[in-house]
Lab assay of single mutants.
Amino acid sequence: VKKMAKAIMADPNKADEVYKKWADKGYTLTQMSNFLKSKTAGKYDRVYNGYVIHLD
């Protein structure tokens, strides 16, 4: 998940494709939050927020 999150950060155009894969795998927002937690607070906030919007 972190590898794909980094791919989104490097190229935001990949976001919809990645979010669809995550949704197809049934990842919940709680799971995504836990996967994307980082020592650098807020590092993956943009990715998480994008997934929230995708699921909505």
Score class of each variant (00 low, 15 high):
residue 46 R to V: 15
residue 23 A to C: 09
residue 32 M to W: 01
residue 48 Y to T: 03
residue 14 K to S: 08
residue 51 Y to G: 02
residue 9 M to F: 07
residue 7 A to Y: 09
residue 20 K to Y: 04
residue 36 L to H: 01
residue 38 S to I: 05
residue 18 V to A: 06
residue 18 V to Q: 05
residue 52 V to W: 08
residue 6 K to N: 13
residue 1 V to K: 04
residue 7 A to E: 14
residue 39 K to I: 08
residue 55 L to W: 04
residue 20 K to W: 04
residue 49 N to D: 14
residue 34 N to R: 12
residue 47 V to H: 03
residue 6 K to S: 10
residue 3 K to R: 12
residue 55 L to V: 04
residue 39 K to V: 09
residue 46 R to F: 14
residue 38 S to T: 10
residue 6 K to M: 13
residue 46 R to T: 14
residue 25 K to W: 15
residue 33 S to I: 08
residue 55 L to K: 02
residue 56 D to P: 03
residue 54 H to A: 07
residue 38 S to G: 07
residue 1 V to Q: 02
residue 29 L to C: 06
residue 12 P to T: 06
residue 23 A to S: 12
residue 54 H to G: 02
residue 12 P to F: 10
residue 48 Y to K: 04
residue 44 Y to A: 01
residue 31 Q to W: 05
residue 45 D to T: 07
residue 21 K to N: 12
residue 2 K to V: 11
residue 14 K to N: 09
residue 17 E to D: 10
residue 19 Y to R: 01
residue 37 K to I: 09
residue 27 Y to N: 00
residue 1 V to P: 07
residue 53 I to E: 14
residue 38 S to R: 04
residue 42 G to A: 06
residue 18 V to E: 04
residue 11 D to M: 06
residue 50 G to T: 01
residue 5 A to E: 01
residue 30 T to Q: 15
residue 11 D to G: 01
residue 47 V to Q: 01
residue 34 N to D: 14
residue 7 A to C: 09
residue 55 L to C: 06
residue 4 M to I: 07
residue 22 W to N: 00
residue 10 A to C: 13
residue 46 R to W: 15
residue 32 M to K: 01
residue 47 V to F: 02
residue 47 V to I: 13
residue 14 K to V: 13
residue 37 K to W: 10
residue 19 Y to A: 00
residue 21 K to D: 14
residue 30 T to M: 12
residue 13 N to M: 12
residue 32 M to C: 03
residue 41 A to Y: 10
residue 2 K to W: 06
residue 26 G to E: 06
residue 4 M to F: 07
residue 2 K to S: 01
residue 21 K to G: 09
residue 4 M to E: 15
residue 34 N to E: 15
residue 22 W to Q: 00
residue 35 F to V: 07
residue 25 K to F: 13
residue 24 D to I: 09
residue 5 A to G: 03
residue 47 V to L: 03
residue 23 A to P: 00
residue 26 G to I: 02
residue 42 G to R: 06
residue 13 N to C: 13
residue 6 K to T: 07
residue 56 D to G: 13
residue 40 T to S: 09
residue 6 K to W: 11
residue 10 A to V: 10
residue 20 K to M: 09
residue 18 V to T: 09
residue 13 N to L: 12
residue 5 A to L: 08
residue 31 Q to K: 05
residue 36 L to R: 00
residue 32 M to Q: 00
residue 46 R to P: 10
residue 33 S to A: 14
residue 31 Q to I: 07
residue 45 D to H: 05
residue 21 K to R: 12
residue 25 K to P: 01
